[in-house]
Amino acid sequence: MRRILVLLLPILLFVLAGPAVAQDRAAQLDALFDRLKTVAPEDEPALQTQIWRLWFAYDGTDPDVPGLLERGNTAMAKDDYTVAEAAFTAVIESDPAYAEGWNRRATVRYLRGNIQGSIADIDQVLAREPRHFGALSGLGLCRIKLGDIQGAIDAYQRVLVIDPQMATAHTQIERLKKLQAGDPI
C-alpha cells in the first residue's frame, strides 16, 4: 500500500498544482505581452519565441495529448496533412481548452485549402487566447485567399496592436493597401 502511495504522490501533486501552473503560465504570458509592446525591434523575435514556447507547452491533464501533438507536428513537417489533421483533431477532442490544438489544426486546414475550416479553428484559438498573433496572422492569410483585402488588413492591424514590431504584419498591410488602391504589388 505504501508503495502505491509513493507512486501516486507525484501524480496527485501534479493534479493539485495544475491550477497553479496555469496561473503561472498566464502571468508569464501577461509579462511577455507587456514587454512585446515596447521591445526594441532586434529583441522582438526572442520574446515571440518565449511566447510560442508557453503556447506550445501542454499543461493539461490528458496524458495522450503530448504524443498526439508530436504525431501531428511530425506529419505536418512531412506534408502528410491527413494524418496531421487527424492528430490535431484528436488533441482538440481530448482537451478542447488547449488553444494550440486548434491553432495547429487551423494551420493544417489552411495548407489543405480548407479556408473556412481554418477560419473556424482560428475563431476557437482567439476565443481561448485573444492575443494569439500567430492565429491572427493566419486569419490575414485566409482573408487574402478569400479575396477579402480589407478583412486581411484588419487582421494584420490586430496583430500590430499586440506586437507593434512584427515586420510581416507591417509588410502585409503595406502590400494589401497598395493592392486595394489598384497599384501593382
Rank of each mutant, 00 (worst) to 15 (best):
M1D: 07
M1R: 10
I4Y: 09
L5Q: 12
L8K: 03
L9K: 05
P10T: 13
P10V: 09
I11C: 04
L12I: 15
L13N: 04
L13H: 09
F14R: 07
L16I: 09
A20W: 15
Q28Y: 02
L29Q: 04
A31K: 11
R35V: 00
L36G: 06
L36E: 00
V39E: 04
V39Y: 02
V39C: 05
P41M: 06
P41K: 11
P45G: 01
L47N: 03
Q48W: 09
Q48C: 00
T49E: 14
I51R: 01
W52E: 00
R53V: 00
F56A: 11
F56M: 09
D62S: 11
V65D: 04
V65S: 01
P66M: 07
P66H: 11
L69M: 13
L69I: 14
M76K: 13
A77S: 12
D79V: 10
D80A: 08
Y81D: 05
Y81A: 01
T82K: 13
V83C: 08
A84I: 03
E85G: 13
A86Q: 14
T89N: 02
T89L: 05
A90Y: 07
A97N: 14
A99E: 11
R104Q: 15
R105W: 07
T107Y: 11
L111Y: 15
R112D: 10
R112I: 07
N114I: 01
Q116K: 15
G117A: 09
S118V: 13
I119N: 04
A120V: 03
I122T: 08
Q124A: 14
E129L: 11
P130L: 02
R131F: 03
R131K: 13
H132T: 01
G134E: 12
G138H: 08
D148H: 10
I149P: 03
G151R: 05
L160M: 04
T168H: 06
H170A: 00
I173K: 02
I173F: 04
R175H: 12
L176P: 06
Q180M: 13
